[in-house]
Design a protein around this nucleic acid. Sequence first.
DNA 1: CTGAAAGCGCTAACAC
DNA 2: GTGTTAGCGCTTTCAG
Lengths: 342, 342
Amino acid sequence: MKHISIKDVARELGVAVSTVSRAFNDKYDIKKETRAKILKKAKEMGYHPNPIAMKLQQNRTLNIGVVVPEFRNAFFPDVICGIQDVLIPRGYQVLIMQSNEESERELANVKTLVNSMVDGIIISFSTNTEDTSYYKELERKNFPIVQFNRVLDKLKTSKVVFDDYTWAFFATEHLIHQGYKNIVHLAGPKNFSFSRLRKKGFIDALKKHNLHFGDEKIIPAGITIEDGKHAMQELINSQNIPEAIFAINDPAAIGAMLVLKENKIKIPDDIGIVGFSESRFSDVIEPSLTTVQQPTYEMGQTAANVILQEIESNIKIPQTLTLGGSFKLKKSSVRIASLYKK
Amino acid sequence: MKHISIKDVARELGVAVSTVSRAFNDKYDIKKETRAKILKKAKEMGYHPNPIAMKLQQNRTLNIGVVVPEFRNAFFPDVICGIQDVLIPRGYQVLIMQSNEESERELANVKTLVNSMVDGIIISFSTNTEDTSYYKELERKNFPIVQFNRVLDKLKTSKVVFDDYTWAFFATEHLIHQGYKNIVHLAGPKNFSFSRLRKKGFIDALKKHNLHFGDEKIIPAGITIEDGKHAMQELINSQNIPEAIFAINDPAAIGAMLVLKENKIKIPDDIGIVGFSESRFSDVIEPSLTTVQQPTYEMGQTAANVILQEIESNIKIPQTLTLGGSFKLKKSSVRIASLYKK
DNA sequence: CTGAAAGCGCTAACAC
DNA sequence: GTGTTAGCGCTTTCAG
């Protein structure tokens, strides 16, 4: 697999390498015919500029690193699609690395990428990431970083997040409107702002409607099906079955539902449940799961645009972009059948 | 973000750049203390070798490209994890690109990667890929390619596949053992060998047990939930409801189940169904879906090892590695409750 | 408009 | 053992 270089083309045509180079970067003066001639010959010979050499020379890579904690759920793959669709047409390559929810591996990933000279990193952190010293250092060095979804407040880079508060509020209010009163929240890992915001939305909705709120309404769970199962099982064991559940995300909701069904507790009649996207399960589970839909694809596009702007302008003013979503009304939260359409 | 180069380190210590280089590549003679001194200083200065420059010089990239048609289902992410876990410790970077099931985009992805000088490509093709001329060219140029899962017979590169025939045979036989007689197969896209092999396994199992086989037993479907829905709806519309279904994969099976449930057809009593992994739905759907489990993670590891071997030995003898799986017995295919354990 | 030449950061002969 | 030097393939002054 030997590469035909600019030299080969130049020799073949008896011109200088710089001329060939110019033909390929049309920002220089070059006679039209020369240019055409060169491009034609180059194509004939199967010449492609070697991006590695370009990168070396220009001290930039045209690579963007994307670091995600996992891509087994639907959420991150969708975001990545959005990122790719913005970046690829702009001539960037998207290097994806996944951290397996381990902050050490995540750190290694980021170091590899930075060290391999990506021009910037779009990242969503792992559940257990606490030590941000290396990221702070990158921040200080002015290295372009955009956080999304799982963002760390400590890090002052640009962020793209979902309007978790509002939609958690809305989701909870929806349950209240359905007549559920004793509502609990399966909460997420507390180092993520989205956990805090969804919890706050939940609490404020209860308060607005003068429903009793106490710490016992917040059930520490997590973001996997297993977490949801575990939390629900605990509730059942402690004879503490609520009337409705607002889950931190779909997998947690699904886990809870699986346990409820095992225990013959009827959804939505005995208990109502609302999730928060991040899976493709909501239409497969029975009853179908009411959920807050996040604009994953758009989140990716937005993050890509932000980093592009930071890289190309070389100006970094940390901004936090907050996206809105939509509500997918399904069966798991609607007691009166007539209210549920389609 | 300015890079400290080998020169800076050399100057700082009053040694030659080659000495610094040698300190970092311990295959040359170099005095222990010099080496220690250099490494220490380098660390102090925050020096990291610039991989881009290394790549240019050595004409290799230490990058492997992975091209997948999608990563919304569980299958490819799992395979990628396996690939990464082999390649990263060996000093390679894994560049993932997804083709969105479009062969044009797939081709562009591969060209980008080849052109960006990855050392090799691990690929699973999109549903509609027909034109293999470019891939043939790469093959001729001896460029390392390993196909997995969705392989094209026309391309004579190394392949890592699942033993589709045997397990399809087994899955079908399982349905027969359950007493189902009129069994149909929801078939996959015909340009993939796995479709053909699973179909053949299905047919041969019917034949072995002297069950009637005719073309009407093969229902062209596809590999998505939508495909499964569509195929099932057609069967119902034509009043042609079989006793059991062997689906090309889980999403197709899930689609069929959703339609069956809509139509109040009982699974597994009225109709039995078996899938073929490729999703995480099998435990979420009700009844839980019996399925053939493919060793996705191991498939990734295997593909990674094959390409590593081809790259590092520079010998390419196309080999096809066939992996075995396991059978996940669940509720969707077992009529007599007592037979189903846990 | 085009050619010559320097240099991006690194490695690998080849000297000494 | 270590230094010198020639490139890897490209862009970009600087001349002409």
